Amino acid sequence: MSSSTSVQRADVYSRVTAEIISAIEQGAGEWHAPWFHNGTSIARPTNVSSGKRYRGVNTLALWAAGFAAGYGDGLWGTYKQWQDAGAQVREGERSTTVVLWREIQVSRQTDNEGDDDGQRRMFARAFSVFNVAQVDGYERPATPTLPEAERLAHAEAFIANLGVKTEFAGSEAYYRPSTDTVSMPPFTSFRDAASFYGVWLHECGHATGSKHRLDRDLSGRFGSAAYAAEECCVEILSGLVLADLGIAHHPRPDHAAYVASWVKVLKDDPKAIFTAASKAQQAADWMHAQQPQAEEMAA
């Protein structure tokens, strides 16, 4: 089994997108996006060698694979990395694709004196990784988990530190770009605390796209490709940050309608999930950067 192979970008887009679509569509008539999770280790895919968390579309790909296979742990590594850790991937186990992007400088001579006009290009390299559930001979060190009350308090402080004005009134949750304000129903309107913070974070996610923050396209109307792309980006963002906070990310009541629109976007454009995941990771990084204490970000 090879630990890595060089592939063309189109192949990477197609392979990863196909795995994510498969995870969404599996099940008895009930689509489930892989960025919904229970807040445990499986929600925070981590590399066994570096101890760092995967980022962007790699997180989605590993969420999708973990959901499809029913894994209970988010620890992953290449064949060689597991060997280096003293473990062995079992024969016949199927790998999951992750992508490493490298920026390289391409030189192009512009005259006879040897001067070159350097251009920087991004190249994709695909790696095959395996979950800890697919190996023998590895014992995961115990990791402490904060009590739920502390995790919820952390979520409250995390959202407050974003500096996005929130008004608690009415029965609908939404972000209004014209006033840069989030509207939220009161806490008692939600089935549990995780749902409350998940929706609040989702709406604050839209606020990260304002002109004076990350400047995403927030003009799309419901049913349009732009609207679906923004919703997909923010749902992934919510999954990323809630995983960092150790809080479950529940599907919203209108989940089926949204997922149907996401699947159409992904099937029409294999690169769409890469774009959405990249923007979601950018927004997650922005949110973490607003916190008063430096937080370790994955690489």
Rank of each mutant, 00 (worst) to 15 (best):
W101R: 00
A64T: 10
A248N: 05
H32V: 12
Y13V: 12
R213H: 06
T17C: 10
D285R: 08
D73V: 11
N131I: 03
E150G: 00
V199S: 09
D116A: 15
P270C: 11
Q282Y: 07
E150N: 08
N38L: 12
Q293R: 12
A194E: 08
G72M: 10
A155M: 09
S95R: 06
E150Q: 13
D11K: 14
E295T: 12
Y227R: 03
N47W: 01
T143E: 14
D180G: 01
V263T: 04
D269A: 06
S50T: 15
A294H: 10
T188L: 07
R53D: 11
Q291K: 06
C232E: 06
A28S: 14
T208P: 08
P251V: 03
S219W: 11
L237S: 04
R176N: 13
A23I: 01
P292A: 08
A173P: 01
A85N: 04
G246W: 01
V132M: 03
Y79A: 05
D254L: 02
V234D: 03
S189D: 09
V7E: 03
D115L: 12
V265D: 02
N38H: 15
S183M: 14
G198C: 05
D116G: 13
Y71T: 09
S41Q: 15
A229R: 11
D215S: 11
D254E: 05
E230K: 05
Y174Q: 10
S278Q: 02
Q105N: 11
R140F: 05
R108A: 14
E150S: 06
L240R: 06
H32C: 10
T40E: 15
R53G: 15
M1T: 13
S22Q: 06
M297F: 12
D215T: 07
M287H: 10
V89R: 02
S41P: 05
K165Q: 14
M122V: 00
H255I: 00
L240H: 07
V129I: 08
G137W: 00
A155C: 13
V129H: 01
P253M: 05
L162K: 04
L218P: 04
S107Y: 09
E113H: 12
T208K: 10
G70N: 09
A142I: 13
T46S: 13
V241F: 01
A149T: 14
M122I: 02
Q83G: 06
Y258H: 04
E25W: 00
Q281N: 05
I236C: 03
G220S: 04
V48N: 00
T181V: 12
I24L: 02
A280R: 01
W82R: 00
P186Q: 14
R90E: 10
P185N: 02
L214R: 09
E296Q: 14
Y174N: 12
G209L: 06
P141T: 03
F222G: 00
A33R: 01
T96R: 07
G118R: 15
D215N: 15
Q282P: 08
N47P: 09
V199Q: 05
F190L: 07
T5D: 13
L237N: 11
G137K: 01
S278R: 04
A260K: 09
D73I: 07
R108Y: 09
V99W: 00
S178A: 14
A248C: 07
A18M: 07
